[in-house]
Amino acid sequence: MNKVPNNKAWWLVLPMFLLVAFSAIIPLMTVVNYSLQDIFDQNTAYFVGVEWYQETLRNTRLHDSLLRQFGFSFSVLLIEIPLGIVVALMMPTRGWQASAVLILLALPLLIPWNVVGTIWQVFARGDIGLFGWTLNNLGIDYNYTSNPLDAWLTVLLMDVWHWTSLVALLCYSGLRAIPDAYYQAAKIDRASPWAVFRYIQLPRLRNVLVIGVLLRFMDSFMIYTEPFVLTGGGPGTSTTFLSQTLTQMAIGQFDIGPAAAFSLVYFLIVLLVSWLFFTTITHMEKSDNGNKHDK
């Protein structure tokens, strides 16, 4: 048989290539381009090499912001994941109650970020906000506009309120996928409720929890709107997270070059941490699948 070389099919890749180019590659390369220059105005720009990167890595304002960011993201995960699991375990499984609870849980997820910020901005005020007023009247000195810890806790609470539902819904779907026979067998084997959770439910939730952890980490690592609406990053810099520092740099101070370098570093950090999570979890799974004799 005569094989005719014909590579015209490669043209079919072109639309996809163009789409990806416009949506990702070109914008990203623009940022890379900015990060290598010192830009004064539209017509004045100097090539500065990796200077902005060096500065970014040495900038203490960014270091503080990064630490604050990690502290926040890990707190979010530490609270939302266990809480989401507990909520999912307590949700009714059938009847109208199940639908009602599902809808109630989904509601916070439908609210836009800045609206969540505004709701809490009012809700937590000491004078007219129910939450702040109640706390103050209980004798707790709470004021998110002046106390850095109060502000930080309020942002955390806001995120927990907004996003725990997501983890709970994911876990709920994971729990529903466990066949009844497992619960029946556990009953027959006289397993305690804790044993049922530890040996039946938790192992089967692992896959949805991977998704939950990744989503919540990435989202909380990019948090911007809520603290911005609540206190504008204050008091001081107590709730100024990475994205807000970046915005201040790029738009407030018009430091396009350093901001571009910083945003690329930011992007790499998110990528790195997500990759770490992912490989750790898949590695756990692998060693689980592996025969104990193999080790």
Binding site: P179, A181, Y182, A185, Y199, I200
Partner: peptide, 10 residues
């Protein structure tokens, strides 16, 4: 039971 029920994690 009809279909095997084993505790996967053990």
């Amino acid at each position: 039971f009809q279909f095997p029920v084993v505790y996967d994690a053990m």
